[in-house]
């Protein structure tokens, strides 16, 4: 159950401060309203997004051990807002936690910087905002904070691969419902869950520069399926998914040869709307796929 005040070592990731700045802004606003204090890890580095691990596994492990060590210096649990950060960091953490000799080897270089990653230090955890919201903040408390229930808003969840697979690495043994948390949050905010085929599939982003057609076919198919299932919008805890589902949506529409035009919200934006924040403060006017429809559904007036 939720504690009164939550403070977290906050890793915003690269994309939330790059091509999806509305995510970073809306997270700050929503954290403030929920009473979650964000202690930003401004010296931390990129998680590597799986690409650095593909190049040199030890390099990726050490870079993320550095981020964990910076978080541990604060004595707080760590929070991220990106499925890809979650998956890439969990992968490295799993290897680091598996073997003390390997951890000591990685810590050699960190010790020169006054840093050290220690397994389970102060019960260290690294959770996406979605996990934190359900497991630490609590759905009952979230429900009690709702000012503007998302009544009548039909929301399709889109998780991002890195936060749902592989299950064994991502703590599903302890938290078996992590692959239905988005549905739980949508419901707690008063919205309607839309079931469609793509909720736990791949947005295609990782291969967008390598095989544009494969990538955009994935994004376009999922957006189209959600539209066909009656969704007013999608919600995602992953800014990389957002890039392919929103920023690339007009291009994806060409690849799947149909009209799309479905708003894609970042998770903090959806929460923020229910907490009574204005769409503009949440950066919703900056999306490529217009979010006007969501605003109209919620306010009943044409935006």
């Amino acid at each position: 159950m939720a504690s009164e005040n939550i403070r977290v070592a906050y890793w915003p990731g690269c994309v939330s401060r790059g091509f999806t700045p509305e995510l970073h802004g809306s997270m700050a606003l929503v954290a403030d309203r929920l009473g979650i204090e964000l202690v930003e890890l401004d010296r931390a580095n990129c998680c590597g997004a799986g690409v650095i691990a593909e190049h040199n596994q030890e390099l990726a492990d050490t870079l993320n051990a550095r981020t964990f060590a910076l978080a541990q210096q604060t004595g707080l649990a760590m929070m991220n807002i990106c499925s890809t950060c979650q998956g890439a960091q969990s992968e490295c953490q799993q290897r680091l936690d598996a073997d003390s000799a390997y951890r000591a080897h990685v810590n050699e270089v960190l010790s020169g910087q006054g840093l050290s990653y220690e397994k389970d230090k102060d019960g260290f955890t690294n959770k996406n905002f979605l996990w934190l919201l359900v497991e630490d903040y609590g759905l009952d408390k979230l429900r009690s904070q709702v000012q503007r229930p998302l009544s009548g808003l039909r929301v399709g969840p889109f998780y991002g691969c890195y936060i749902v697979r592989p299950k064994e690495r991502l703590g599903y043994n302890h938290y078996p419902d992590r692959d239905v948390y988005l549905e739980k949050v949508i419901e707690a905010l008063g919205g309607q869950v839309v079931e469609y085929d793509g909720a736990r599939k791949c947005c295609g982003f990782p291969v967008v520069t390598m095989n544009r057609d494969t990538s955009l076919r994935q994004a376009g198919t999922h957006v189209g399926d959600a539209i066909d299932a009656g969704a007013d919008c999608l919600v995602t805890p992953c800014p990389l998914c957002h890039l392919n589902l929103d920023m690339q949506q007009p291009e994806a529409a060409k690849v799947v040869n149909r009209d799309l035009g479905l708003p894609v919200l970042h998770l903090p934006q959806l929460v923020g709307l229910a907490l009574g924040a204005e769409p503009k403060e949440l950066g919703m006017d900056r999306h490529v796929a217009s979010t006007r429809w969501v605003q109209e559904r919620l306010t009943g007036v044409a935006a």
Binding site: C161, R165, P166, K167, P206, V207, M210, T214, S215
Partner: peptide, 11 residues
């Protein structure tokens, strides 16, 4: 380079 890194095959 056509693998989209979705972890489905792992599970």
């Amino acid at each position: 380079y056509d693998c989209t890194h979705c972890f489905s095959c792992i599970d």
